[in-house]
């Protein structure tokens, strides 16, 4: 599924990047690469940009950009409740 389809409060892990061009680069530089786990924090009042948090940082992005990120949902972050070995398989 895509990042844009997640609901507020859900946790997920990046499995691939579909975005192309400069924005792809920017997303990668921000640290959103395969394996990065994040949480959807909120949606802006008017419904568009969404805010996610990972590795202690908060990132806002439009749904349009979020569509370029393929993710799979996880129940908990690595090292939070499950151990490393319990990683969710890639969808």
């Amino acid at each position: 599924m895509r990042l844009s389809e997640l609901n507020v409060g859900e946790k997920a892990e990046v499995t691939a990047l579909k975005a192309v061009g400069a924005i792809r680069r920017r997303i990668m530089d921000m640290g959103l690469i395969k394996g990065t786990q994040f949480k959807v924090v909120r949606v802006a009042p008017l419904g568009d940009p969404i805010e996610i948090s990972f590795k202690g940082l908060y990132l806002a992005m439009r749904k349009n950009e979020a569509e370029g990120i393929v993710v799979c949902k996880v129940d908990a972050f690595n090292g939070e409740e499950f151990s490393q070995a319990d990683q969710q398989p890639i969808e």
């Binding site: 921000m30 940009p49 990132l59 806002a60 992005m61 439009r62 349009n64 950009e65």
Partner: peptide, 8 residues
């Protein structure tokens, strides 16, 4: 333009 921005 794409919108990806950090919230400090």
């Amino acid at each position: 333009e794409p919108f990806v921005m950090e919230l400090p």
